[in-house]
Structures are given as C-alpha cells and as structure tokens.
Design a protein around this nucleic acid. Sequence first.
DNA 1: GACAGTGTTGAGTGATAACTCAATATAGAC
DNA 2: GTCTATATTGAGTTATCACTCAACACTGTC
Lengths: 212, 212
Amino acid sequence: MANSTDDMLHQAQLFNDFTAKQKLIIIAAIDVFAEKGYAATSTKEIAARAGVAEGNIYSRFTNKRGLLNAIITPVLDQMFPAELDDFIKSRLNQDYMSLETFLTVLIQDRITFLQSNAQIIKIVLSELLNDTQVRKRVINNFTAQYWQTMTHDLTVLKQRGVLVDWPFEDILRAIWSTTSGLILGFLYFNQPLDAETVNHSISATIKALSPK
Amino acid sequence: MANSTDDMLHQAQLFNDFTAKQKLIIIAAIDVFAEKGYAATSTKEIAARAGVAEGNIYSRFTNKRGLLNAIITPVLDQMFPAELDDFIKSRLNQDYMSLETFLTVLIQDRITFLQSNAQIIKIVLSELLNDTQVRKRVINNFTAQYWQTMTHDLTVLKQRGVLVDWPFEDILRAIWSTTSGLILGFLYFNQPLDAETVNHSISATIKALSPK
DNA sequence: GACAGTGTTGAGTGATAACTCAATATAGAC
DNA sequence: GTCTATATTGAGTTATCACTCAACACTGTC
C-alpha cells in the first residue's frame, strides 16, 4: 500500500531537517511500520524500499528506534495540543459557546488531524500498546498539556448547565471514544468517514454529554 | 507483571486439551505477548519463563504463530458471539424491551468478558493492528455472527421508536466505541472500571442512541 | 582545482532469532 | 514389570537481525 504523492509531500513537510535520501528512508519506514509494525520490520527492508544503503539509516538516526522516534515525535506532540488552534479558539471564544459548537469544532479538528496523519497514527497506536516508553510519553503529553486546555472550557460549559456534571475523565473519555472509534473504523476496517457518518458520531456525543 | 493464581486458573480452563507443561507455556506466552507484543517476544524467553525446554513449544504448537493462534482463537471466537448468553436472552426477550435494558445488559456483558480476558485481549488488539490475517478473522466473525444477532434486536427497537434511526454501522460503532474506550482506559491507562464510571458510559450510550 | 565537511555506501560482524531432531523421560495398558 | 506411545529435552543449524566502519561521493568555499 504505497503513499500517494500528496501524502509524501505532506509528510515531507514534517521532516524538513533531513536530506532527500533521509526523507526517502522516513517515508519508506512509515509505510512498512504502519503495515507490519515496528518490531516485525527490518532495517534492511526499509533501506531496500527507500532505494538507499542500509548504513545510511544508522548514520543519521543512530539506530532503529531513533528512526521510529524521528517519525512519531512530531505527531505525538501535536496529538494532544497545549492550546487550541487559532481558528478553533476564535469559534469557541464567543459570547455564548454552545455544547454543540464546542464538540463539533473539537471533534472535527481532531478527525482532520488524525486522518491526515493516518499512516503515522497507525504506528503510534501499535507502539502505544506494546511500548511502555511511548505510552508514558502519550500520558505525559495528555496530562501536562491537553488536560489543562480542556478542563477550562469544560468547566465553563458545566457552569452554564449545558454539559453533564461528570468527572472530566468521563467526559473526555466519551469524546475520545467516539472520535477514536470513527478513526479506527476508517483506518482498519474500511469504514467511511463521510459527512453523514461523522455527523452521527458528533450528534451522538452531543446527546451523550447533554444534561437530561 | 505476573498473573494472579486466579487468572491462571481462569486461563487454564480455556485450554483443557493441553498437558501441564503446555499450559505453563501458554500462560508464560500470554504474559510476555501481552507485555511486549508478539513480534518482540522470543520463544527462548517464553520457554525460560515457563521453566520448560524450548523444543516443547514446537512439538505441540508447530511454530511460534501456532502458539499465538492457540492463545487467541478461543477469545476471538467469543468476542462477537453468534448468539447471546442465555441469561442475557432471558432479560432481553421480555414483552417490552427498553433501550436502557438492552444497552445496559449488552455493554455490561461485554465489559465483563473483556475484563476477565484482559491479557489475551491485549494480544488480540496488538495483532489486530499489525496482522492482516487476524484482522480478517475478526471482521469475518463480526459480520458472519454478531451482525446477524444484533440487527434483529436493533430492528425491533427502531420499530418501537426507542432507538435512533441510523444505519446499523453507526449504532454498533457508538456502542463499541464507548465499550472499547472504557476497556482501553482500564487496560493501558490505569483508569478505574468501577460502577460509577461504567454507569456514566452506559448512560452516555443510552442518551446518544435515543431519538430526540 | 584543492580542500574540508558532510552524506552515502555496502561488505562485514557478532548476536540472536526460529526451528529441528535424535535421545531421553514419562505415563498408561495389560 | 514390560511395552508402547506420547511428552519433553537441549544442543545444534541456518538465517537473519541490528549495527559498524573504512572507503568513497558529493557540495560548497576560497
């Protein structure tokens, strides 16, 4: 399953500090890691797909894990952002922020992000399940950045009485469960990610988190 | 992270066709596979943990993948059952089956199943992401068994007007997203699985799937 | 065009992977 | 207790793994 040219360009933007051949290595590695997993992939295969000598991997990325880290770090850092995108902020910082607006903008934004980094997300997910270090990094990013960002807005919504009065953990789990369900279905089970499907999920989340 | 004796007994029940040493192999393999993933685990390490010669693995399980299959097959087959448990059936086949009853019984049942097979579920999830064959098996079980079972009851609920009129795909995704979110939080992020947390998730699903 | 610095190569290395197999231990039938 | 079939052993085999390194190519500077 090769990347389209668009995907390659998009990914290349994330990796500007690298030479042309190093980018080829990264792109090949993303492909193979996403397909069979990090542990089941050999550096020899990556080099062959990239059309590059195997030693090149080690002169730039130190070792196999260094290559993995170079790939997943930029995505990991953007997954649970410390603050929201300017566009989102402008939509959310209105006089009256409805739960519907809040969840629609938020979920749409994350779906766009996850979908446009589909291959790398697959790698991150797999490592999340198998590697304690990666799992710690994700937890750390989540609690140190995202949690702070979200609880502020969630508190406002609670106070206005438009959000159910549950612990933040339960609310965030509800939001991320539906978002992840959508993305996982798309990535692994060939399910569509069209407007109607997404709208149903968003609508389900809105209803789920509205007070009775 | 060793298994408790209870877990070992529970797992042993699933694997009655095996000798004592073969069960030790299975239990050791479950432990290591769940911790670091199938591909990153060597048969040498499994044999060492089981206190057994390495060759024993190959005389009974043919090869490393055979061992994996012996472990995940019974869980895979129960994950999306062809028909519901008798107890569940009796609760659901009442004169009036409310959406609340339906979802509560259904989700509780799957949470119990997933939780009591926690270690093997971790292995299945990891392989689901990395192995096309396992993914095909899951898809096949789901569509050939579970889909048939569920659509019948969902149709009844739709006709009674207590269930939102969405495609079955979207409804099942909503149910499984929240269930999976709960289990994943428990398995990988040390989140609690207490009654209140579960109730919030179930309540969220009920609201999400109720018509407006 | 000589030089310096960085990028790239690919044959080579030791470790370890999955797997084999002839020898040995064990358990049940009679 | 003997016999037979199955379970178990562990040293050995082959392939492949991650990784190294000395040699070579390339690029820009003066």
